[in-house]
Design a binder for these strands. Structure first.
Length: 498
RNA sequence: GGCCCCGUCGUCUAGCGGCCUAGGACUCUGGCUUCUCAAGUCAGCUACGAGGGUUCGAAUCCCUUCGGGGCUACCA
C-alpha cells in the first residue's frame, strides 16, 4: 500500500538515513512525544542511519530553558541516544532553532526576493474579521490574498501608517500530492491551503519556515512525526520548492497515529498520566515504557510483544506502523513492567531498587543495610509490578520501632492465634539455640509443630505468624522473611504479639 | 462548516482474497498450584461499525453511509 509512486527510491536506497526528533518544549515531553521519539530513534538505529535531536524553540512565548533541559534528560533516561543535537553537537548545528535565526532570516529574504513570498500588512484584527465573515458565509476560512499583489503606492501607505508586515508564502494554484509512508498518497488542493505566514512582523520565524529549512539543511531523509502535522505537509513541501530542492530530494514523510487517553480523547492528565517523570518516580523501567510505547501503533508481528531495546531496533520498520490511533492502557504497561522487572539480573534489580529504598527512608547506604537489601531482593522480585512497591514490602526488615498494622493486629488476638504464637516461640527458640536459623529449618520445625501436631491448616497457622513477624497479612514468603530478620528479632516480635 | 486522516474482542494488536466457525497479549471470570501477596499454569467471556457491490469465495478490493480524530493561528 505505501508509496506506489516510486519517488521514495532516491531517499530509501541511495542516501544514508537521517531522522530527526524535533519537539517544541512548551511543556514536559509527554507520552505521545516519547512514542514519536522512540520510533524516530528505532528507525535510525534499524537502518544504521543518524538520529538527530533538534529543539524547536521558535515560540519564545511558551518555550522555557527548563523544559528544554527536561526533554534532554527524559530522552537520556529512556536510553534514546542521539548522534547529533544538544550536548553532542554535530556537523549540521546548531540544533536549537533559537540559535539559527540568521539562517531563517536569510532564506526569508531570498523567498521575498524571488517572489515566492510577499509582505502582508494585514493586522490581526483585520484577518480575524475576514475569517469571521468567511465563517458566516460558510466558506473555508483562510487568508484571502489581500496583500498578494500590492502596488508600491499601497506598500508606502502601509509603511507610512507604521504597519509592520509578516512574510507570507505564496501558494500557487494546483495541488500537492505526496506519498506518506504510512498512509499512502495524500493530496491537498491548494485552494484549501491558503498563503501561510513564514515570519512574524518582528522577523522571527514560524514553525513552517524553520522546520522546512532545518530539515533540508540538516539533510533529513525521513520525517516521522505525529499525524497532527499531516495537513501542514504541503506547506513544508512548498518551502522546499522555494529553497530550490528537487522533488526527488524531499524528505519522506510518515505520519504516526496518535496516542489517545482512556476515553478516546487526546492523552492528558485527566485520563492517564502523561509525564515521563511521573512514570520514573512510580517505579517504571525505561525499557518497559519503551517496549509498551512501541506496541502503540506498531507490532513486530508473529504474536511477539516482549522486545528489548536492541530487538526493537532490529525489528522496527515503518511498514509495520499502523495508521489508526491507539489508546494508552496503564494495565498493560504495568504487566510489561512486571515482566521486565522479573527479567532483571539481581544486580540490575538492586541498582534500580536502592534509590526507592533510600528515598523512602526504609534503608540507608550503610554496608549492613545494603547487604540485607541484596539478600532480600530475590524474594520480592517476582511479586511487584513497579519499583515503588519495594519499600512497603521490605520495611519490616529495617524498621526500628516495629508495630503491627492496625487492621492486621485484630486478627491475632484470639486464643487460637495466641496458641500458635506461643508454641512457635518455644520451638523456634530451640531451633535458634541450635544455630540453624535458615528458612528450610524454620519451615520444618513450624510444620511439625503447627500442621502435624496441632492439625492446623497452613494458611491459618502461618497467618498469625506472618502478622506477628512482618506486621502485615501481606508479606514476602514467611520463612525466608524470618531468616532475613534473624532469630533474635523474629522471636522478640512473636513473643511481643502473644 | 470546509479539507485531510482513521474504523478487527473492553484495550493493544495478528491478518494484506480461500490457511479465519478470526490468532496472540493485557484486563475480567473460574480452576489448578500455594504460608499471604504475587508468580506460574489451565479454561472461559468478548471483535471484523453499518449497508451495498466485485468475486466461486471478503476482515481483506470498490462505493455509500455512520462514527471518531486532526487541521482550518503572526502555536507546533
Amino acid at each position: 500500500m505505501p508509496n506506489s509512486s516510486g519517488k521514495t527510491s532516491a531517499n530509501t536506497l541511495t542516501k544514508k538515513v537521517r531522522v530527526r526528533f524535533a519537539p517544541s518544549p512548551t511543556g514536559e515531553l509527554h507520552v505521545g512525544n516519547i512514542r514519536t521519539a522512540l520510533f524516530d530513534w528505532a528507525y535510525a538505529r534499524h537502518t544504521g542511519g543518524s538520529f538527530i535531536f533538534r529543539i524547536e524553540d521558535t515560540d519564545t512565548e511558551r518555550v522555557t530553558p527548563e523544559y528544554i533541559q527536561a526533554a534532554i534528560n527524559t530522552l537520556k533516561w529512556l536510553g534514546l541516544d542521539w548522534d547529533e543535537g544538544p550536548e553532542v553537537g554535530g556537523a549540521h548545528g546548531p540544533y536549537l532553532q533559537s540559535q539559527r535565526l540568521d539562517i531563517y532570516a536569510e532564506w526569508a529574504a531570498k523567498f521575498l526576493a524571488q517572489g515566492d513570498a510577499y509582505h502582508c500588512y494585514c493586522s490581526a484584527e483585520e484577518l480575524e474579521a475576514v475569517r469571521e465573515a468567511q465563517r458566516k458565509a460558510n466558506v473555508a476560512p483562510g487568508y484571502n490574498g489581500h496583500c498578494r499583489n500590492l502596488t508600491t503606492e499601497q506598500i508606502s501607505s502601509f509603511v507610512a501608517d507604521g504597519r509592520k508586515p509578516v512574510l507570507r508564502m505564496r501558494m500557487p494554484d494546483g495541488s500537492t500530492t505526496f506519498t506518506d509512508l504510512i498512509r499512502g498518497d495524500v493530496t491537498f488542493e491548494h485552494q484549501f491551503v491558503p498563503d501561510f505566514v513564514l515570519a512574524r512582523n518582528d522577523g522571527s520565524p514560524l514553525y513552517t519556515l524553520a522546520v522546512a529549512v532545518d530539515d533540508v539543511l540538516m539533510g533529513v531523509t525521513h520525517v516521522l512525526r505525529g499525524e497532527d502535522l499531516l495537513s501542514s505537509t504541503p506547506r513544508q513541501l512548498r518551502v522546499y520548492d522555494a529553497m530550490g530542492v528537487k522533488a526527488e530530494d524531499y524528505p519522506l514523510f510518515a505520519h504516526l497515529p496518535f496516542v489517545m487517553g482512556q476515553d478516546n480523547a487526546k492523552l492528558s492528565k485527566r485520563n492517564g498520566e502523561t509525564s515521563i517523570a511521573w512514570y520514573r518516580d512510580a517505579g517504571y523501567l525505561p525499557e518497559a515504557i519503551c517496549n509498551y510505547l512501541a506496541l502503540l501503533g506498531w507490532s513486530p508481528g508473529e504474536d511477539r510483544e516482549n522486545v528489548t531495546m536492541k530487538e526493537l531496533t532490529e525489528l522496527f520498520t515503518v511498514e509495520r506502523v499502523h495508521s489508526s490511533p491507539a489508546r494508552f492502557d496503564m494495565k498493560k504497561l504495568e504487566a510489561i513492567n512486571g515482566d521486565k522487572i522479573r527479567a532483571l539480573t539481581i544486580d540490575a534489580f538492586y541498582e534500580w531498587s536502592m534509590p526507592f529504598l533510600t528515598k523512602s527512608g526504609v534503608a540507608s547506604e550503610s554496608p549492613e543495610d545494603i547487604a540485607l537489601v541484596k539478600s532480600a531482593l530475590p524474594i520480592i522480585q517476582e511479586r511487584i509490578t513497579t519499583l515503588s512497591e519495594i519499600p512497603a514490602l521490605l520495611n519490616f526488615l529495617f524498621v526500628k520501632d516495629f508495630a503491627i498494622e492496625s487492621e492486621s493486629a485484630a486478627k491475632i488476638t484470639d486464643d487460637a492465634s495466641k496458641q500458635v504464637l506461643t508454641i512457635s516461640a518455644e520451638r523456634l527458640t530451640s531451633l535458634a539455640a541450635q544455630g540453624s536459623w535458615d528458612h528450610a529449618s524454620i519451615e520444618a520445625v513450624l510444620r511439625t509443630a503447627l500442621i502435624e501436631e496441632l492439625g492446623l491448616k497452613p494458611r491459618i497457622a502461618f497467618s498469625a505468624l506472618r502478622i506477628a513477624v512482618t506486621g502485615s497479612h501481606i508479606s514476602p514468603p514467611l520463612f525466608e522473611s524470618m531468616e532475613l530478620l534473624g532469630a533474635e528479632k523474629s522471636l522478640a516480635r512473636i513473643r511481643g504479639a502473644i
